[in-house]
Design a protein around this nucleic acid. Structure first.
Lengths: 231, 231
DNA sequence: GCGACGGTTCGGGCGCGGCCGAAGCGTCGT
DNA sequence: ACGACGCTTCGGCCGCGCCCGAACCGTCGC
């Protein structure tokens, strides 16, 4: 059966530690150069080049040439979703047998992180919950709808909603692997993340996917979404 | 980062062709013996044994001893969901470059198939759509709700809704990789599939996940859910 | 032009892991 | 009790593919 072969091929691409490291580094939706990805994976540039060729060849990555650099990014949201689902299984596995010390790094990831191009983690789920509870958002499995109240509310927060409507799905629920509840993805999710970053409510943390809530951000999230909580 | 290693390990387990074949054979939720899985994967029993040990060791499979047989099944719905998401990416990949002849086998899979323990494919999505449109079902991303009208409707169809409520999630949307729209999973999804099979509206096809709609089934689906269509 | 730098290609080494034959263990039938 | 059967363990073979050193191509800066 050829479908089994394709399945195994995709999975095997994720299954190499070096490639897995690269893919995880790209999971926040940024485009990185080959050298950066080599460092992320802990291999030499020539090894990374080989891996990147395989990943692009299989359609998991898209490349963009810019001068003498080559920027690599995940080819599609479905790739990110696939990776999240693998992480969900890996997390199950770890939670079950022995609740082995989840370091501060992990706690930060669970609290707030980027997922492809939108926000994920406890904060993201809380934002979605708050908006649904207030009737500002209607989250259905095949695409959410922002109500007029929601549109006005976000405009009041200074979130830019007018970009690229129509190109991609505007609003889509995305299952959060740490919270196991949906948060907001799609163009709306990306706009929210951008807006939060632009107003400095959130700030990227070192080189990881973790995101920290700034002190003014904490106050703002409490005011706007009723979220109270510590990192 | 240990989380990367766990991710790669899970993916690598799916990435071997023989293991992929076994996992796919188990995707319909049945429990199969080691010998059956060996045949499905096209390897000798001793090779299969080694693979099965790895899969169980990692928590992807659960084993149940019964006499001198050992029945293997997917350990959790999250495993099935992960596999479906990988198939979605693999399908993307195939649709893009060259719409290579999707054989009748594939068309059947797209039309109706089992997914873990519930129904998937065109028919499953149509069932969900019909019930949502009539206000019998409310599908939210973090779990659907059967309305009183829906409960009565299904009771009228002779679907058994009284089993294992509470043990697992009663109703959950599951993204259909061929239709890219949600269908009904969870205990409700399993009850629907069982009911359809029991009334002989659906019948398992040879040894695959494909399911055929029987002639009486076709009439019944048209009457009960307004589904008209050919295999 | 030249060197510096990012990236890829080539070649060869090497280890991991899948595969099977043979043997061992436990369970069931008679 | 014995053999048949399902499954696992052991041992050894073999090949895939990961990895790096070195050399090669293209772009940028001076």
């Amino acid at each position: 059966m050829t479908t089994t072969a394709a399945f195994a091929e995709i999975a095997a691409l994720m299954g190499d530690p070096a490639r897995a490291g690269m893919l995880e580094a790209l999971l926040d939706g940024r485009a990185l150069t080959a050298a950066e990805l080599a460092r992320a994976a802990g291999v030499t540039p020539q090894t990374a080049s080989s891996h990147l060729a395989k990943l692009s060849g299989a359609g998991l990555l898209a490349v963009e040439r810019q001068g003498r650099h080559r920027y690599h990014r995940l080819a599609a949201p479905s790739v990110a979703r696939m990776m999240e689902s693998v992480m969900a299984v890996a997390a199950d596995r770890r939670d079950g047998p022995r609740r082995l010390a989840t370091g501060p790094r992990d706690r930060r990831l669970r609290h707030a992180r980027t997922c492809y191009d939108h926000l994920a983690g406890h904060v993201a789920v809380a934002v979605a919950d708050a908006m649904v509870a207030r009737g500002q958002l209607d989250l259905a499995p095949d695409g959410g709808v922002l109500t007029p109240a929601g549109t006005e509310f976000l405009r009041g927060l200074g979130i830019d909603l007018d970009r690229a409507r129509g190109r991609r799905v505007f609003c889509r629920p995305c299952l959060d692997w740490s919270e196991r509840r949906p948060h907001i993805a799609g163009v709306l999710g990306a706009a929210l993340l951008d807006g939060f970053m632009a107003r400095d409510w959130l700030r990227r943390l070192d080189g990881t996917r973790a995101v920290e809530v700034t002190p003014p951000g904490r106050a703002a999230f409490a005011r706007a979404f009723g979220i109270r909580g510590e990192p």
